[in-house]
């Protein structure tokens, strides 16, 4: 009995060591290369730093200003929450759907997959110009297509990204177009699903829908969860599409948190304030992510735990 416990604890110690050994390249890099910039930015968030002179310590002033007397801070945070809460669910549904569609073995599938991936590689200028043209209220393609609907409902054509109420949603639509990235991850995960599962289901006469719902989707939850977390992290840092499409407008309708952070740093040259914003963002996203990680064990199917 005693001997067995000893072996167990030795194995435990050993696994501890092996765990650290496997993680050591990453941990070493984090401590030697990552820790200083990370902690430096934390310190800078308590200073007044214009990127020219030495940072001057001012305590919690930056945080106090942001939270108590900066209206744009709250406005941009609200815009970001709106974006995250709509873009993520839509992105997952579309990404999974597209992956299911493209996981068929049909002639020319490679070409289709490449075409759907195209938006992830084209220049951002080309992308912006195309979407400005699609959304253009007077002669854009989307409103051309929708014009019978407008006539039927007798309403004014939508002004998409030029309308403060619709601008955020328009940018979300546009972001969905880069769904090829997550799609690749879903496709990769689908390859890990054992064929035997499908074969036995087919013998039971299961339809495609039935197989998708009871085999494919549950077994894809790890990558769905991954894309969900990544969507959260990326969504809270959304910036580029607003920068190129709307310049944060109309008004400040698409002025997202990361956009404000960028302006604080570049336009105002206020690195102290920008760092404080970055750390507030980090804490916020971390809280949301921790909640998601907690929920994860109820939702995500993992082979080992079943």
């Amino acid at each position: 009995m005693k001997k067995r416990a000893q072996t167990l604890s030795r194995m435990k110690r050993q696994e501890n060591l092996i765990g650290y050994l496997f993680a050591s390249p990453w941990i070493t890099g984090l401590i030697l290369l990552g820790a200083f910039p990370f902690l430096a930015s934390f310190y800078i968030s308590f200073t007044n730093y214009n990127m020219l002179s030495f940072p001057r310590f001012i305590g919690l002033t930056n945080y106090r200003i942001l939270l108590s007397s900066d209206t744009i801070f709250w406005r941009s945070l609200g815009n970001t929450f709106y974006h995250v809460s709509i873009a993520i669910p839509l992105g997952i549904v579309l990404g999974v759907g597209l992956a299911l569609l493209l996981n068929n073995k049909v002639y020319g599938m490679s070409v289709y997959r490449t075409m759907f991936y195209l938006p992830n590689v084209v220049s951002i200028v080309a992308m912006a110009l195309m979407w400005l043209w699609l959304f253009q209220p007077s002669f854009g393609l989307i409103n051309e297509v929708l014009s019978p609907v407008y006539r039927l409902l007798d309403i004014e054509p939508l002004r998409w990204h030029q309308d403060a109420r619709l601008a955020k949603f328009s940018l979300i639509l546009m972001g969905l177009w880069a769904v090829g990235g997550p799609m690749v991850i879903y496709l990769a995960q689908m390859q890990d699903i054992p064929n035997a599962l499908y074969e036995s289901a087919e013998i039971d006469g299961a339809s495609w829908v039935r197989k998708t719902v009871s085999i494919t989707l549950p077994l894809m939850t790890p990558s769905i969860f991954f894309n969900f977390i990544m969507g959260l992290i990326g969504g809270f840092q959304v910036f580029t599409i607003a920068y190129i499409m709307t310049s944060g407008g109309p008004g400040r309708a698409t002025y997202y948190y990361a956009y404000y952070l960028f302006d604080t740093m570049i336009s105002d040259q206020n690195m102290g304030m920008a760092s404080a914003m970055a750390w507030i963002l980090l804490v916020l996203v971390l809280i949301v992510t921790m909640i998601a990680l907690r929920l994860n064990r109820y939702v995500v199917y993992l082979g080992e735990e079943s």
Binding site: P37, A40, I44, M51, S275, A278, W279, L281
Partner: peptide, 14 residues
């Protein structure tokens, strides 16, 4: 995960 959450611009200079 936290390392992904900090915008890279603020750690660029350090």
């Amino acid at each position: 995960l936290a390392t992904l959450m900090i915008p890279i611009q603020v750690i660029l200079i350090p």
